[in-house]
Design a binder for these strands. Structure first.
Lengths: 351, 351
DNA sequence: ATGAAAGCGCTAACAA
DNA sequence: TTGTTAGCGCTTTCAT
């Protein structure tokens, strides 16, 4: 009896009035035990529960949100859904949402910003969602946020502070600073940087890198490029290997880029970390397996996702409760990104 | 004017009757232009469209599905949402669904099969979904499928044929066979296999591997293990490197496992491909960057996801149309997985 | 604590 | 082609 099917699979799905009839109570009473908002006498409560089980009744979500005005789904808007950091963040949001009895709608935002008003946003808003989590890691995320009407409860997920927004972040600048200092501490004269595409202004990783360089009085070289593309990173790695012997330390915007660079470097016959040290970002599950294992800045994306949902839930709750609204809650949840030193960094050959 | 906000952001969101009033037509007429089901005179049609734009009106999804009985969302049930193959499949489903004006709910299934009835399934079914795509790549997927009432339109996504089900697959057995033959052709006496966890019966990769071995008259060794865990793969790799010199060729259930094995092998001082050849599965984006670049069996997961939605949409359409129901449509969509030879395979040293 | 009545915002029959 | 009338399956007043 792993999965006991209810009563002779009714031809028509059971409705609330079927349950009421079977339990010998009124429809509102069934509703009361369903929502748990008001109390019902133990006897009736029990009978209702039993009728529900016997009929295999499942309330209609559509009817509930229509009648109550409180949707039980939230949406995630993201420029990409399968890249490591994105997917893990989504996983965290979903996990926390499900625990709180919310379902999660997921919508990818097309890259084409000019696509009038961002179609995905429109589509999602039609679906009666309680709120939205926007992954603002890239330009599509920025566009989605812009297209979102002010009235929709939201939380922004990114690597940098946003003014006036509910926001969950991982402090990338901190982690990038640590990584840069680690490299400098190893004896490298400066650190070069290959970035992921920015979200308008400069991303946190780049900011933290530059600050650390300045703080140490090291030269601040130009950013090598902005990309998500590992093939491009590989080309850049090869180019560096062939033409830029002065570059001995590299900080990359993410681990995939770092892996691409390393491959390019080795295509050019240079060794990591003996000839050049490489640091990634994210702590991708494959980074510890890589040869050499990648020194990287770890980000807990699942936790980031969970915190995002928490921030959204806080807004939704406070909407129900005017008193709570005035409560000074934190609108921002931040966690540090932490450097993990592995095998891809070492003192420069000249040192 | 990138994002023209409608009329002085109404305090209350506009409803269909607001639109009707503004356009000087009846409510059903507005509904008719919304659904596009019946035709409306050009003049009124135009006025309605304009009223909608002016009011920034967006129909309520909840009300629509309640009234029409046709939900505009589908759900994806998956044991994992961020692993490469899963995430990409989900991406494909989402893309196709959005194009067809369906939204996608995503629900992760907890690993604990005993959790009465699989909570995620219950939660999803409450939400009025038109159908469900089940990622049956692993035990949680199998459990979810079992918990799904027979009445819910569904498509099963996996690597092996299922009888009596709408199903999208990538023919893994074929790809695994090709990979095995490739290794045998290189001169290896046999090929060992590390598998991903099975879905009850043996997975397609294992089946294809074994068949190819038999066909070639090669010895069929025991499967080395079943796991998703790369750390475990690394341990196995090291063990092989240290204690099983007779193993010269390895086929892995996925690329991450292959990378884990390779790292373990190198921990033990053995070289790939000189000492042992390794083949992965999936064509993970990092596999071409790996050193040595990984020979693997490519699977187009995004396409798999798209085809899954197509199969679901076919069912939904046919429900509307009794005539179409009798039409013999294909219930199965299959594509081959293709071997990509890179650097991680070579003739055995003894050859 | 409980029931009766009134919607939630739409679509679907039915006339006209 | 269009408007009028009924619901869809719930939750929420409001009485009692």
């Amino acid at each position: 009896m792993v999965n006991p099917k209810p009563e002779a699979a009714a031809s028509r799905p059971a409705r609330i009035d079927d349950v009421a009839k079977r339990a010998g109570v009124s429809v509102p009473t069934v509703s009361r035990v369903l929502t748990g908002a008001q109390r019902v006498s133990p006897a009736k409560h029990e009978r209702v529960l039993q009728a529900i089980a016997e009929l295999g009744y499942r309330p209609s979500g559509a009817a509930r949100t229509l009648a109550s005005g409180r949707p039980s789904a939230i949406a995630i808007l993201a420029g990409n859904t399968s890249r490591y950091g994105y997917a893990r963040t989504i996983e965290g949001v979903e996990e926390a949402a499900r625990a709180a009895n919310y379902l999660v709608l997921i919508a990818a935002i097309e890259d084409d910003e000019r696509a009038g008003g961002v179609a995905a946003v429109d589509q999602v808003l039609g679906q009666s969602v309680a709120g939205v989590v926007v992954l603002k890691f890239d330009p599509p995320g920025v566009a989605a946020l812009k297209a979102l009407p002010d009235t929709v409860p939201r939380v922004v997920v990114s690597g940098q502070r946003e003014p006036n927004a509910y926001q969950a972040v991982i402090d990338e600048a901190l982690g990038a600073g640590e990584a840069t200092e680690h490299l400098l501490g190893l004896g490298h004269r400066t650190v070069h940087h290959l970035a992921v595409p920015t979200t308008g202004r400069e991303d946190g990783r780049t900011v933290g890198w530059r600050k650390a360089l300045r703080r140490a009085g090291a030269e601040v070289p130009e950013v090598l490029g902005w990309t998500w593309d590992t093939a491009e990173a590989r080309r850049i790695g090869r180019l560096i290997g062939e033409t830029r012997p002065e570059i001995t330390a590299l900080l990359c915007g993410n681990d995939e880029l770092a892996m691409g660079i390393m491959r390019g470097l080795q295509d050019a016959g240079r060794r990591v970390p003996q000839d050049v040290s490489v640091v990634g970002f994210d702590d991708h599950p494959l980074s510890s397996l890589w040869i050499p294992a990648l020194t990287t800045v770890a980000q807990d994306f699942v936790d980031l996702g969970r915190r995002s949902f928490g921030l959204l839930a806080a807004q939704l709750d406070s909407d129900d409760n005017a008193a709570a609204r005035s409560t000074v809650r934190s609108r921002r949840s931040s966690r540090p990104a932490a450097l993990i030193v592995r095998e891809s960094t070492a003192p420069p050959a000249s040192a």
